[in-house]
Simulated scan of single mutants.
Amino acid sequence: MKKWAFISDFDGTISKKDFYWIIIEKYYPEGEALFHQWKNGDMKDIEFLATIFGSINQTEKQTLKDIHEIPIDEHAIPFIRAVQEAGGDFYILSAGTDFYIQHILNEKELTNVQVFSNKGYFKENNVHMDIDPNEWHFSDRYGIDKSVVIQHIKESYDHVFYFGDSEPDSHPAKYADTMFAKDALIMILKEQGVPYIPVRDFKDVNRFLSEEGWLKDE
């Protein structure tokens, strides 16, 4: 067994803004109405995202430019490196798509970060998700079942941390040894009675892990 791992959501956690909002605001204003339908439970997550990602209608060059303009928590990248330097493994667990996540990791020159997410690819001026219902972590609603993934990861570690910001993260939160929550997830976990540590960003998470002796002193 390895000692520990840190798992993080991407959109709204590592990034300050969900990629779908960037698309809606720049190219698909009709998506705001769909957002409310989705939040009201009238659409599954993968249906909402597939519609938004399929409404970019831009060249791959422009889409990659938009991806690289996703605002990232300025403390996230140093934190990932600090985890790795301290002997922990870092994972990204996202119900979005690995298409933009991998481009961000490559741009930031981050290595040895395993990504569990819906497979994505660029074709005909849009981003598409390749969701396989036979995949071991398939979810009919999210595309990827975060609860199944975190339980799989936990089999290899003594302690697993998780950090998220929204409803999809409430499911793996129940399996984390230590749970960090921000934004809407705080109230969700509070209502569910799931233990969590409220934080604002990776700076707060870094402080906690440093004080608890998980990270090396700067």
Rank of each mutant, 00 (worst) to 15 (best):
I80N: 01
M1L: 08
W136S: 12
D201S: 06
K182S: 09
F19L: 15
I144H: 04
I144W: 04
V205G: 05
D177T: 01
F35C: 05
D98W: 09
H68N: 14
H36G: 00
A5K: 13
V194T: 10
K26N: 15
I101D: 05
H36D: 14
T97L: 01
Y20G: 01
I92D: 11
Y142R: 02
S8C: 12
I72Y: 00
F161D: 07
D89A: 05
H152N: 08
D9W: 12
D73M: 03
D177V: 03
S94N: 03
N40W: 01
P133W: 06
K182Q: 12
I92L: 13
I144C: 06
I56W: 06
G143H: 04
W136L: 11
A173L: 08
E25W: 05
V149A: 03
D169N: 04
I67Y: 01
Y28L: 07
K174V: 12
V83I: 15
G31H: 10
Y27K: 11
D158K: 05
D18K: 15
E74R: 11
G143S: 06
D130W: 01
E69I: 03
P29F: 15
L189K: 07
W21V: 06
D183A: 11
Y28I: 10
K146T: 09
I131M: 09
H75P: 00
K190P: 00
V115K: 05
S166Q: 04
D201T: 02
I7S: 09
P168K: 03
F6P: 14
P168M: 09
Y27Q: 10
I104R: 05
D11P: 13
N126M: 05
M129G: 03
K119N: 13
D42Q: 13
I46R: 04
D45T: 13
N112G: 04
D158F: 01
W38R: 00
F161I: 12
I56V: 15
P168L: 10
N126H: 09
N57A: 01
K203Q: 10
P71C: 07
D165Q: 06
G193T: 06
M43A: 06
F90R: 04
H128S: 02
A82K: 14
D204I: 04
D201F: 00
D145T: 02
D165I: 07
D165M: 07
L34M: 13
N206A: 08
E155L: 07
D9S: 10
K203P: 00
K182R: 15
F163A: 15
F202G: 05
A181V: 00
N40I: 06
S55T: 03
A82D: 14
W21L: 14
I72W: 00
E191D: 10
H68T: 05
F10T: 13
Y91I: 05
A50V: 10
A173S: 15
Y196P: 00
V149K: 01
N118W: 04
F79E: 14
V113R: 02
S166M: 04
